[in-house]
Computed example of a mutant assay.
Amino acid sequence: MERKKFLLTTAAAIPALLVGQNLTAQKPKRPNKGFVVKATESRFGEKTLLGGKNPNDIKVSQKDTNGDLTIFEYTGNEKGGPPLHIHLHQDEIFFIVQGEYLFQVGEDKHNLKAGDTIFLPRTIPHAFAQLTENGKMFFLFQPSGKMEDFFGELGKLNAPPPPEQGAKLFVEHDMKIVGPPLKF
Results as ranks from 00 to 15, higher is better:
L7W: 13
L8Y: 14
L8G: 10
T10L: 15
A11Q: 09
A12V: 07
A13I: 02
L17K: 01
L17F: 08
L18V: 15
V19Q: 07
V19H: 08
G20I: 06
Q21V: 13
N22P: 00
A25L: 10
A25C: 01
K27Y: 07
P28W: 06
P28M: 02
K33A: 06
G34T: 09
F35M: 10
V36W: 08
S42H: 11
S42Y: 14
S42D: 13
G45F: 14
N56H: 04
K59W: 11
K59N: 02
S61A: 09
K63I: 01
K63H: 03
D64E: 11
D64H: 01
D68R: 13
L69I: 13
I71P: 01
Y74K: 04
G76H: 06
G76C: 07
N77A: 11
K79L: 07
G80K: 13
G80Y: 13
P83D: 09
L84K: 06
L84E: 05
H89C: 00
H89S: 11
E92R: 04
I93F: 09
I93M: 13
F95Y: 14
F95G: 02
I96V: 15
I96A: 02
Q98F: 04
G99T: 05
E100S: 04
E100V: 01
Y101E: 02
Y101I: 00
F103L: 03
E107Y: 04
N111K: 14
A114D: 07
A114F: 08
G115F: 06
I118Q: 02
I124N: 11
P125R: 05
A127H: 05
A127R: 05
Q130W: 07
L131N: 02
L131G: 00
T132G: 00
T132S: 14
M137C: 14
F138Y: 15
L140F: 13
Q142T: 15
K146F: 11
K146V: 07
M147V: 15
M147G: 03
M147Y: 10
E148V: 10
D149W: 09
L154K: 02
K156G: 14
K156F: 07
N158Q: 12
P160V: 00
E164Y: 03
A167F: 01
L169T: 01
F170H: 11
F170S: 01
H173D: 04
K176C: 05
K176N: 08
G179N: 09
G179H: 10
